[in-house]
């Protein structure tokens, strides 16, 4: 589903240039779940941004669903993100002016579904995520765990090929975090999505198929279950 070949990225210029990603080669197949570990500043979020078509790498090739990503066409990138990718952010990043259902439904409607269909799909996925009871609530009225479930529902509603998650449990206690991750991984597998999750929390390792460690811009595969 994802294939990176010699992806590199640096920040800064001249003598102050800092290489964050160093000629990375890796791939992730459909239905595979990967945990990306690494210390702060190791390049986890940078890599996630490149995989999410939000950041243009300095060099290398990135193939998404057998399609070479052209970073020089921003409007195509937006479409690619809408069609192929699902995102779950550290602080859920739900739209505060929309209720739960609307937060989820807009992704489908942005892809061309009618409003009626989008809301039907949103109701279905919210039901699966156990948040249907709070469908009419605003994000500010939800607990942290509920918010992340909504974020996961938003990432899954359009059946993306790849889901990128940036420390989705960082703001949750361990018990709630476990619940959320368990559900997340299960849904991703059921939907045959490639899931790449960045985290600091090594306790989540058992939930994932592959463990990748990034340090000093280099990616090391630590283990495959």
């Amino acid at each position: 589903m994802i294939k990176c070949r010699k992806i590199s990225h640096s920040f800064g210029k001249g003598g102050a240039q800092l290489r964050i990603i160093n000629s990375l080669d890796f791939s992730v197949a459909r239905g595979e779940t990967c945990l990306l570990l690494g210390p702060s500043g190791s390049g986890k979020t940078t890599l996630l941004s490149i995989l999410g078509c939000l950041l243009t790498p300095d060099s290398g090739e990135y193939w998404l669903d057998q399609q070479l990503v052209r970073f020089d066409a921003p409007h195509r990138l937006a479409r690619l993100r809408a069609e192929k990718l699902g995102f779950v952010f550290q602080h859920s990043q739900l739209l505060p002016f929309l209720d739960v259902l609307s937060n989820v439904a807009i992704v489908a409607e942005n892809l061309g579904s009618t409003r009626r269909d989008s809301f039907q799909r949103a109701e279905f996925i919210c039901d699966r995520m156990g948040i249907f009871d709070c469908a009419k609530k605003l994000p500010s009225e939800l607990s942290g765990g509920q918010r992340q479930r909504v974020a996961i529902a938003r990432a899954l509603i359009h059946h993306p090929g790849v889901i990128l998650a940036d420390e989705p449990t960082a703001a949750l206690d361990w018990e709630r975090g476990q619940d959320v991750i368990g559900l997340f991984v299960e849904e991703a597998k059921q939907g045959q999505c490639a899931l790449i999750m960045v985290t600091h929390d090594t306790r989540l390792v058992p939930y994932f198929d592959r463990i990748l460690h990034i340090e000093n811009g280099n990616l090391i595969e630590v283990g495959k279950l």
Binding site: L54, A78, R81, A82, Q93, F97, V107, L111
Partner: peptide, 16 residues
């Protein structure tokens, strides 16, 4: 702005 950034990230173009 954070909301607009989210919308951009989840696939909204600049036009909308």
């Amino acid at each position: 702005l954070p909301n607009y950034a989210t919308l951009r990230a989840i696939g909204f173009g600049r036009k909308p």
